[in-house]
Every structure is written in C-alpha cells, then in structure tokens.
Design a protein around this nucleic acid. Sequence first.
DNA 1: CATATATGTAAGTATTTTAATTACATATTA
DNA 2: TAATATGTAATTAAAATACTTACATATATG
Lengths: 148, 148
Amino acid sequence: MRESSQFTIMVHVLTLLGKVNGPVSSKFIAGSVNTNPVMIRQIVGRLRDAALVETLSGSAGGSVLSRSPEQITLNEVYQLTKKETFFGLHPNEPNPYCPVGRNIQAVLTGVFEEMDQLVEVAFSKITLADIILQVSQRELARSEPLSG
Amino acid sequence: MRESSQFTIMVHVLTLLGKVNGPVSSKFIAGSVNTNPVMIRQIVGRLRDAALVETLSGSAGGSVLSRSPEQITLNEVYQLTKKETFFGLHPNEPNPYCPVGRNIQAVLTGVFEEMDQLVEVAFSKITLADIILQVSQRELARSEPLSG
DNA sequence: CATATATGTAAGTATTTTAATTACATATTA
DNA sequence: TAATATGTAATTAAAATACTTACATATATG
C-alpha cells in the first residue's frame, strides 16, 4: 500500500516515550531512530495533533505520552498514516471510453476497503503496551541468551 | 504498504484479457490503462513469468489468459507485487545501541507479517471472475439506470 | 518474400515522492 | 540572560516511479 516509513517511525517514537520516564527531546529520539531532529518534531507534531502525546517547550522540554500505553492502539497510529486507498490506483485516470477502464477503479476501491477494514480491526487489538512488552522481552532474551 | 500501482494495473490487464476474446496487444491495453505500451509489456512480462498469461509475438499477437478467470485469485497477483514488508521499515537502520532501536524492527516485522497474512487469506478468496463480474454489473447499471 | 505489426528489453529521461538539512522565531528552565 | 527546547517554513538531496526512445526479434498476411 504504497506509503512511507511514517507508521514505523511513529510506533518507534511512541515506544520510546512509553519506556522513558519524563520528557524526551527530539534530538534524543532522532538518535534512536537514526534521523534528523526536525523530522522527529514533524512526526511528533502529528502525534500531538492526534492527542497521543504532549509536547513541552524550552529547556528540559520534549514529548510525553498523553495516555498510558495500554490505552493507545496501533489503529490510532494507522489512521494517521493511511492514504486514501490501501494500494495505489492508476497513476493516470484509465480510459473512460473503455468498459473496463471506466469501472475498474470503483471495483478495486471496494476490494481495497475490504482489506483495509481487516487491517484496522487487527490493529485496533494491538496496544502500544503490547509493542513495548515485545521489545522488552527481546531485550531480555538478548542479555540472557543461555537462561531457561 | 508503500508500493506502486502495479497491483492495480495487473488486475486491470487481467480483467481486460478476461473480457476480450483472443490476443490483446500491449497498445490496446495501454489505451485502456492510459499509459505506455512498453510499461504494459513489462507488466505482462511479469504475469507471463507467473504463468497467468501467455504472449504471442508478431502481427495479430498479444496476450491471453492461460487459465480461466475462475482459476485465478487476487492473491496470485498480490504475491507478484508485494514488497519484503507490508509497511516500510526505517529509511535508515535504527540505533543498535538503543534498547528500542535494536529491537523495534523485529517486533514490527512480526506485526506486519500478521497483517499480510490476513490480506493474503482474503485475496485468495477473490477470483478474477469476481472482479470481471463486478465490472460487468457496474457497466450494466450504467446503461440501465432506470430499470428495476 | 516483403511488409506491417507484434513482443522483449535495454537505456535514458522526467516526474513525483520521501528524506534530510538549514535557518530562525518562540518558549522555558535555571 | 544563557542554554536548550519546540514549531515551522523553505530549500536541497536522494530515491522511487513513471515515461519514452530505440531497436532486435517474431509472425501473420498479401
């Protein structure tokens, strides 16, 4: 479904905020994501507009989650990043004088919405807390490779 | 899931082939899709490699379906177009010295595979015949707007 | 057998989308 | 008031997509 890495970066940012206590600066986040602080501020801005995080200006400023990780679902993040259609339609409008060309987009849009619905339902069952837990478990497994 | 319009164009092409009797030229297909014949030949080439169509060279050449529309599922087309991951991961590798950075991709890859699985199952239940029928029904509704 | 019309494919160009950077106004802590 | 944040506009760079040109090869048909 042709889109960028925004979903991934948003979840990464939220996961960081969920694990760190207190405001986290865009510079710190950028260090983890391996990108520019400005890009992080733009992404955090969208999370703030969606009321998922709060931001604090000035020295000792940064971002914090506005809700607990248990109360944030991946579907909320997905809604911020999804495009009009699940997959890309034609780069140019198909031929309106062709019986297939003038109907195919409507048919495919219906199919894509069906897929999108499946994904939304699944995402709405996954919380940020689930992601944080999985990250922590992997981190634990890394430090205790021989235990168990 | 970040990708192009290939899926859409492939389904468009297959739908055309399913409705037209006999070989269809890349020029004719390009006229319906509203793009260049070369792009169509490239896309048809991938469909041929996947044994979904057969192509005939020379005058009066073109493409034909190699199976009936009932025997072609959208999942076969999806398999040809999907990228490594459902969504894009990070543009740059996240920081390996960060407990979140070094684990988030593995966690998200798991989530994305889960979503991909849902989509594949759904696509494998939709055949090209279903798409052709829907296009035909829309075409019929267009020509008989007052019937019923 | 020559002509017209296909496909197959490489190579190059253009366009669009994404990502990264620079710059600076504003806010806040200490 | 100095240090360090955010917010955002504007620019540049890079990458992904789409389009086009060119030409070798194949085949039906007059």
